[in-house]
């Protein structure tokens, strides 16, 4: 059973066993506008919780995607590098960014669930 969690920086993370897939939320893609460029880490490298894992850019804004957990990058979504519009169209599905092998399978414990994140976004106005 996959667990879906969210961060205050508007990343989502879906855990399945000791791996997890990471992307940006629908709210994040709306705030950025049309995404024109995505920079992804190389598979095999490490990401550290709270540190920059990827970069996402629209024509007029750039934003870092922070790793919500620490681990090793297993795969990245080359499809969004070639066609960044996928992130706008389907941020939680086809627009995923990277998957990692978790250092700590319990790393998602402190993060928000879907309802808590929805409330958090509502607060942002």
């Amino acid at each position: 059973m996959a667990t879906l969690r969210f961060t205050k920086d508007h990343e989502w993370i879906r855990q399945d066993g000791d791996t997890a897939v990471i992307g940006i939320t629908d709210y994040a893609q709306q705030q950025l506008g049309d995404i024109v460029y995505v920079e992804l880490p190389a598979p095999g490298t490490r990401v550290e919780c709270g540190k920059e894992a990827a970069v996402v850019e629209s024509a007029k804004a750039a934003s870092e995607v922070y790793a919500p957990v620490s681990g090793e990058v297993i795969a990245v979504n080359e499809a969004i590098a070639g066609d960044p519009a996928k992130v706008n169209a389907d941020p939680m599905g086809e627009g995923w960014f990277l998957s990692v092998k978790l250092d700590d399978p319990n790393a998602l414990d402190g993060l928000m669930d879907e309802a808590a994140y929805a409330a958090f976004v509502a607060e942002q106005g």
Binding site: Y37, E57, S58, A59, K60, A61, A62
Partner: peptide
């Protein structure tokens, strides 16, 4: 003007 996200008015210290 394009690829402006490289530039200081958007990326600031980066």
């Amino acid at each position: 003007l394009t690829l402006s996200t490289r530039e200081q008015h958007i990326r600031r210290e980066k």
